[in-house]
C-alpha cells in the first residue's frame, strides 16, 4: 500500500517556495476519500430514518406543463394550419420533384456520375467503392428506396442550411444571440429525436414532411454552430485590414467573412448530412418512405436479412456523402491557407 511519501524536491529549480507543512490533522490520500464518503452514507441513513425511504415531492407540476404544451400545439395546429399546410405543400412538391428526377435518371448514369464526383473530389479508390456499392444496392432491389432516401436527405439538408446560415451569421455577430441560441442548440442535439415526432405529426400530418421537419430540428445545430465558428475564426488582422479600406458591415460579411468561413460551413454541411442520415429510420416511424421504411418494415416482420440490407444501403450512402463533402471542405481549406509554402 502506498504510504504517502513526501513529493521529491530534487531537480526542481527554484520553484515557488513549497507550502509549509500543515499542523494538526494530517490526512493521507485514502482518508481524504473515505471520510467524505462515510459522512455521506451516515447523512443518508439519518435522513432516511427521519423522512422514510419513499419521500414524495411536495407538488407535481409535470402534468400541468405537459397539458399546457399539448394545448398550445393543438391551438397552433388548429389556428395556423394554413401556414403549415402551405409549408408542407411546398416541401412535398420539392421532394417529389427531386425524387422523380433521381428515379428518372437511368441508374448507370447515376452510378457513373457519383463515381466521377468521388474520383474528382476524393480518389479513384473512393470512386470504385462508390460505384460498386451503389450497384450492389441496386442488385439488392433497393434502388428506388435509396433514391427516395437521397431525395429526403437533400431536402432536409437544403432546409437546414437555409436556416443555419442566417442564424449562424447572427450568432457570430452578436454575443447575445449566441448566448441565447446555445442552450437551444444543445437541447435540440441531445433531445431524443423521437420527441419531435409527435408535434411533427400534429403540425404536418403523416408522411415525408414531418420526417423532414424532425430531421431538420435534429440535424441543424452543427450547421449553425460551424457557420458561426467559421465567421468568428476569421483572423482579426484580416478583418481589420479589410475595414481599414472602408468596408461596410455588409461588404465585410459577404466578401471577407463568409468566403473565409466556407470550409467551416462545409464541415457543418457534412455533419448535418450525417445526422440527417441517422434520422432515416426514425423518420420512417411517422411515414417517411425510402430505406428507412424498408428497415422498419423488416423489423416489424422479424426479417433480419431485409433489415440488414436496408441498413447497409444507408451506410453506403453515408460513406459516400461523408467522404465527398469532407474532401470538398478540405479542398476549400487548402485554398484559404495564408502562409507561404
Amino acid at each position: 500500500m502506498a504510504v504517502a511519501t513526501p513529493p521529491t524536491q530534487a531537480g526542481r529549480p527554484q520553484g515557488p517556495p513549497s507550502a509549509p507543512p500543515r499542523k494538526g490533522f494530517q490526512l493521507n490520500r485514502w482518508q481524504r476519500v473515505a471520510l467524505p464518503i462515510g459522512g455521506f452514507v451516515v447523512a443518508i441513513l439519518v435522513a432516511a430514518g427521519i423522512w422514510g425511504s419513499e419521500m414524495e415531492f411536495p407538488a407535481d407540476v409535470g402534468g400541468p406543463i405537459a397539458d399546457w404544451v399539448n394545448d398550445t400545439i393543438r391551438t397552433i395546429t388548429r389556428n395556423f394550419s394554413f401556414i403549415f399546410d402551405t409549408i408542407a405543400d411546398v416541401v412535398l412538391r420539392f421532394l417529389l420533384w427531386l425524387e422523380a428526377i433521381f428515379l428518372w435518371i437511368p441508374w448507370p448514369v447515376m452510378v457513373g456520375g457519383i463515381g466521377y464526383v468521388a474520383w474528382r473530389m476524393v480518389s479513384w479508390r473512393m470512386a470504385l467503392f462508390s460505384m460498386l456499392a451503389l450497384v450492389a444496392v441496386g442488385f439488392a432491389g433497393l434502388w428506388p428506396s435509396a433514391m427516395e432516401t437521397t431525395a429526403l436527405i437533400v431536402v432536409a439538408v437544403v432546409i437546414s442550411i437555409a436556416v443555419a446560415i442566417p442564424l449562424g451569421i447572427l450568432a457570430a455577430r452578436s454575443n447575445t444571440v449566441d448566448a441565447i441560441l446555445r442552450p437551444f442548440l444543445d437541447g435540440m442535439q441531445t433531445m431524443p429525436s423521437f420527441v419531435y415526432l409527435v408535434p411533427a405529426i400534429m403540425l404536418f400530418g403523416i408522411g415525408n414532411v414531418p420526417a423532414i421537419f424532425a430531421t431538420v430540428i435534429y440535424a441543424v445545430p452543427p450547421a449553425i454552430r460551424l457557420t458561426s465558428l467559421g465567421i468568428r475564426q476569421v483572423t482579426p488582422q484580416v478583418v481589420e485590414a479589410a475595414q481599414s479600406f472602408g468596408t461596410t458591415r455588409r461588404q465585410l460579411l459577404l466578401k471577407v467573412q463568409l468566403p473565409m468561413a466556407i470550409p467551416s460551413i462545409m464541415a457543418g454541411v457534412n455533419q448535418t448530412t450525417m445526422m440527417a442520415l441517422a434520422m432515416v429510420v426514425v423518420g420512417a416511424l411517422v411515414g417517411a418512405g425510402g430505406l428507412g421504411e424498408d428497415v422498419l418494415r423488416a423489423l416489424q416482420r422479424f426479417q433480419p436479412g431485409e433489415a440488414l440490407l436496408g441498413g447497409l444501403a444507408i451506410v453506403v450512402l453515408a460513406i459516400i456523402v461523408d467522404r465527398v463533402t469532407q474532401a470538398w471542405a478540405k479542398e476549400r481549406q487548402e485554398a484559404l491557407r495564408t502562409d507561404a509554402h
Binding site: 488582422q237 484580416v238 481589420e240 485590414a241 479589410a242 468566403p259 473565409m260 491557407r337
Partner: peptide, 8 residues
C-alpha cells in the same frame, strides 16, 4: 499592416 492582412 505588419501581418499583411491579405485576403487568402
Amino acid at each position: 499592416f505588419q501581418y499583411f492582412g491579405l485576403l487568402p
